[in-house]
Simulated assay, not measured.
Amino acid sequence: MFRNAPWLVLLFYCIFLMPYSITISGVAYNVPSWLRATLGFSVPVAANFSEIVRGAIGSIPKGQWEAAEALGYSRSVTLFRIILPQCITRMLPPWMNLYALLITATPLASIVGVEEALARTQAAVQSEAQASFLIPMYVTLLVMFFLYTYPISCISNAIERRFRTV
Rank of each mutant, 00 (worst) to 15 (best):
N4F: 04
P6M: 05
W7Y: 01
W7C: 00
L11D: 04
F12T: 11
F16S: 08
F16I: 13
L17T: 15
P19T: 14
I24N: 07
I24F: 14
S25K: 12
G26K: 05
V27C: 04
N30G: 06
L35T: 08
R36D: 13
A37N: 05
L39G: 03
F41K: 09
P44D: 13
V53C: 12
A56C: 08
S59M: 02
K62W: 04
K62C: 01
Q64F: 05
E66K: 11
E69T: 15
A70T: 13
L71M: 15
Y73E: 13
S74W: 02
S76G: 06
V77N: 15
T78G: 14
L79E: 10
L84R: 06
P85T: 02
I88Y: 10
M91L: 03
L92M: 08
P93C: 05
P94R: 04
L98D: 03
A100V: 11
A105T: 08
T106E: 01
S110I: 04
S110C: 06
V112A: 13
Q126Y: 12
S127T: 09
S127W: 00
Q130N: 12
Q130C: 05
F133G: 04
L134V: 14
L134C: 06
P136E: 12
P136F: 10
M137T: 10
V139C: 04
L141E: 05
L141M: 12
L142I: 06
V143M: 07
M144W: 03
F145H: 05
F146Y: 09
L147D: 06
P151F: 08
I152D: 03
A158L: 09
A158C: 00
A158E: 00
I159P: 01
E160C: 01
R164P: 05
